[in-house]
């Protein structure tokens, strides 16, 4: 009997399987090391990190929605130096798979500095640049909402990341995702991660107040899956670089669907919060589902939808 091949390649980084917990929904990986052997995961994307430590937004930061949730964590993190000096080495001690450092910034200089430090860390395999943050030098407009600013971040960080692959993680809160993805590709991005959260809001009708202290936050979870599949499909047809598909993934079937849309690897976010073993269970179910569908090598389905 031939076993199904689950391994995939992201710009030369080999993953034993395409499953990656998404940034912000798996801490710095080590928090979960006592729960299951992290080595079953193809990769781990770490909590978004900035130059300075950040407390993040006021609470409440979480709101429940039908088939999803809103978060307004506001990039709480201990800062890039703690990531590089403590978190990355601690995770590498227990984990041999692909470590993805997720970087945020509020200026091009901050992105450069943080990406440079993350790329120099021997434990980092891939840099994922979250361009959904507001640009403090440009009236708070998110970098990822215009093709030109997304491209400027891309070319700036590409210069400081050496040989390490740089994935730009795009925001879905845009009119034309394809033009932004293409601008990143043209600016030298090695890959694209899609999608970050959608801007959402809930109101407590009894108290007549927003549920989230910051009023609005990022909506994600199962409800956003069709939007994510659509965006991955659109971008994969317009760009040549690999895509990490993300948004609403909750099962092995979803992973397969996302890969058929064009993703080379798949991230699971909010589902990890309701089920701490979601990523592990998906990895376990994937070969069974592949067998059902007659898929011998997961690579054969990447982008099969024309």
């Amino acid at each position: 009997m031939v076993n199904e091949n689950l391994s995939v390649d992201l710009c030369g980084v080999k993953l034993s399987n395409p499953m990656i917990p998404a940034s912000g929904t798996f801490g710095f990986g080590i928090e979960m090391a006592d729960e299951f052997d992290l080595n079953v995961l193809g990769g781990i994307s770490l909590k978004g990190t900035t130059r300075e430590p950040r407390f993040g937004n006021p609470t409440p930061r979480i709101a429940e929605c039908r088939s999803g949730m809103i978060n307004s964590v506001g990039l709480q993190n201990p800062g890039i130096d703690v990531l590089v000096n403590e978190k990355l080495p601690a995770l590498r001690r227990v984990y041999g798979g692909a470590i993805i450092a997720n970087i945020s910034g509020f200026s091009i200089e901050e992105y450069e500095e943080c990406c440079a430090k993350a790329a120099q860390a021997p434990e980092t395999d891939i840099i994922e640049v979250n361009v959904s943050c507001p640009n403090v030098h440009n009236g708070g407009m998110a970098f990822g909402t215009s093709a030109s600013s997304a491209a400027s971040v891309t070319s700036a960080v590409k210069k400081v990341c050496g040989e390490k692959p740089v994935f730009i993680k795009l925001s879905p809160n845009v009119t034309d995702i394809v033009s932004i993805a293409k601008a990143c590709e043209d600016a030298g991005a090695d890959g694209i991660t899609l999608i970050n959260t959608l801007l959402g809001m809930r109101i407590d009708i009894q108290r007549r107040t927003p549920v989230i202290a910051n009023k609005m936050g990022g909506f994600s979870g199962q409800a956003v899956f069709p939007i994510a599949v659509r965006m991955v499909y659109q971008v994969s047809h317009a760009c040549r670089i690999p895509i990490m598909g993300c948004g609403g993934v909750a099962s092995a079937e979803d992973v397969i669907e996302m890969m058929m849309a064009g993703a080379s690897a798949v991230q699971v976010g909010a589902e990890n919060l309701r089920n701490p073993y979601a990523s592990k269970e998906i990895v376990e179910n994937l070969p069974l589902k592949m067998k059902d569908l007659g898929i011998k090598d997961i690579n054969e389905i990447i982008g099969v939808i024309e």
């Binding site: 409440p60 949730m69 964590v73 919060l273």
Partner: peptide
């Protein structure tokens, strides 16, 4: 506090204390 995960991975439930967040 309102929680996302309840087991320490999402930073949804942070409060400020004399020991930091």
């Amino acid at each position: 506090e309102r929680m996302g995960c309840g087991f320490g991975i999402c930073y949804g439930c942070t409060c400020n204390t004399t020991k930091g967040p």
